[in-house]
Structures are given as C-alpha cells and as structure tokens.
C-alpha cells in the first residue's frame, strides 16, 4: 500500500516509522488512561476526571510533567548501560508493531518469518531491562532485573511452543497467512489450551500482575527502573504498554482470527480484539495478588512447559493422522 503511494523505500520506512511511533505514543497514552479508569472502577473510585473529557488528557498532562522532570543519574551508575537501557527496551517494540496485519491490505511489513521475528524482538527488550538493572547500581534494581531475565526465559518457552502449534495448523509463519487461515473459524476453538498457555505467558512476558515480580512495588520498590526519572522512566512505561499491545496483537493474530469478523471493517475488529485482551489483562492485574518468584518459576517449568509441549505434540499427531 505504501509502496504504491511513495515508491521510495526510504520514504516508506520513514513514514512507517512515524506512523508507528505515533501509534505507540497514542496507544500508551490511551492505555494508561484506560488502566487508571478501569482500576478505579474495579475499586469503586472515579479515576482521572479533571483534564479533558473524563480525564482522557490526564496522561498527556502527566507526560508533559515527566518531560519537565530532572533526569537523575545515580553517582555510581554504569553510565553507558544506564543511558542506553531505555532505548534498548523501547526499540524492539517499534519493530514488533510493524509486523502485524491490521487489515487485509494494511500491514507495514509482511515477512514469511513474521512470527519468529516478533518473538525475537520481544526477547531483546529484556536485555535492556537487565542493562537498566545492572547499570543503576542499585540492589533493588539488580534484583528486579535478575527476576525479569529469569522470568522471561521461563515464559518464552511455553509462549513460543503454544505459538508453534498454531503454525502447525496454519502451515506458515507468515502472520498474514495465519490470519487468512482463520477466515472461517479462529484457532481459539482448535487450540484452547494453547491459547490459555499463551495468555498466561503473555501476562508474564509483559511483567504484569500477577506476574509483575520484576517491578514488584511492595518488594523491590520499582524493580529495574527504580533509579530512572523523567522521560527515561516514561520510556520504560511506554515500552511496557506497547508490549502489552504487541502480545495482544500476537494473540489476536494467532488465536482470535486477526481482522476477521462480521459486519465491521477488519481493522476495527483487529483493535477491538487487541484492546479487549488488554482489558482482560488489566482485569487480572486489579484482581489478583502477586505470585512469589519461586512459585512463578515452578509454575512455568512444571506446569506450562510440559502442558505446552503436550499440546504441541498432540497437535502434531492429530494433524498427521487426520490431515491429508
């Protein structure tokens, strides 16, 4: 689509980048507002009401406030790592978003290894988190970073295994092909276990409650980003909410049939599904207490990994037997 419009690959890249950055910013602003509003309603509060209609501009005001805040660098911080970390955390997100088919003809890049690329870039973010934790020269931050890395490794396996079952069904790793394969029925119906494992893994991947142990406020103050202030902190925040959008987009693409849906246009369906999933994750967060670190790990390694392996094997066997 953009190719026809511009024809120039650099222009296309620049334009896509601008669109994606714009989308990520608006998305984060909206999600923070949604989270505050939803959490407030779950807790019988009102949430933001003052700035803009129903407080919609509150997060924008907060972002402006964060822009004006002093950037503090701890005295004994490992400065290159400390300064680079927010960038490393945020950049993979930009690539991740560009890979999803938002509508039949609307996607930035359509690669035949799209799914692999999504997970590959999702993994990079954790290097940034570890850099942040290590570079801050703060024990709480380091503890949070160590937790984050261990958790990421543990939960990426069931996440990818459950995604693999879907690729077996679709016979492709091309995201647009996976979505097209679900034109009649979403894979949720064929892969309920895989979808459930994916959802749990996704919540853990985004460090959200009840798996928010890397930044567990009551234990580690703010975890890996304890020492970050101002816009650097805002970038971590932006990355967190963008990651939520990405894992929900993956889930939408893999299990919910992407842009397929009756009556409404494809992109509307896509975003309904994405934000529905995000709301579900918020609902989790504002209901459950937090797991302990060892419980989280043993849950991943003794429950989710075997289950997802069994799911993958089962899918393969069933496909081998019943598909011509």
């Amino acid at each position: 689509m953009f190719n026809q419009l511009f024809g120039n690959i650099w222009l296309v890249t620049l334009a896509s980048g601008a669109v994606i950055m714009g989308f990520l910013t608006v998305n984060a602003l909206f999600l923070v507002w949604l989270e505050r509003k939803l959490s407030a309603r779950f807790q019988r509060r009102l949430g933001p009401t003052e700035v803009g209609f129903a407080g919609t501009l509150q997060t924008l005001a907060d972002a402006v406030k964060l822009l004006g805040k002093q950037l503090i660098t701890p005295r004994n911080a490992d400065k290159p790592l400390y300064h680079l970390a927010p960038v490393i955390v945020f950049m993979p997100v930009v690539v991740g978003v560009s890979l999803f088919p938002i509508d039949r003809q609307l996607m930035f890049v359509d690669l035949n290894v799209g799914l692999v690329l999504v997970f590959a870039f999702a993994g990079i973010g954790f290097i940034g988190i570890f850099m942040a934790g290590w570079g801050s020269n703060n024990k709480y931050a380091l503890l949070g970073a160590m937790r984050a890395v261990a958790q990421n490794i543990a939960y990426e396996i069931p996440l990818i295994l459950s995604a693999l079952s879907v690729t077996l069904l679709a016979r492709s790793m091309k995201l647009s092909a996976i979505v097209e394969a679900q034109s009649t029925l979403p894979y949720l119906l064929f892969q309920p276990l895989g979808a459930a494992i994916y959802l749990i893994g996704a919540v853990a991947e985004t460090n959200r409650a009840p798996f928010d142990i890397p930044e567990a406020e009551s234990e580690l103050v703010a975890g890996f980003h304890s020492e970050y202030s101002g816009m650097r902190f805002a970038v971590f925040f932006l990355a967190e909410y963008s990651n939520m959008a990405i894992v929900s987009m993956v889930a939408t693409t893999l299990f919910l049939g992407g842009y397929h849906g009756p009556w409404l246009p494809g992109y509307v369906w896509f975003f309904i599904k994405v934000y529905g999933l995000i709301s579900l994750m918020m609902w989790f967060r504002w209901t459950f207490p937090r797991l302990r670190f060892d419980q989280l790990m043993s849950f991943a390694w003794t429950v989710l990994v075997p289950l997802s392996l069994a799911n993958l094997m089962g899918t393969a066997v069933v496909l081998k037997v019943f598909r011509r």
Partner: peptide, 13 residues
C-alpha cells in the same frame, strides 16, 4: 497485607 503481597483492589474495598 494484601497490598504487600500485590493485591491492590482488596485494599480499597
């Protein structure tokens, strides 16, 4: 106590 172990909503109830 619930806040300590990560449950925020019961605190407000």
């Amino acid at each position: 106590f619930l806040l300590d172990i990560g449950g925020i909503t019961p605190f407000l109830y």
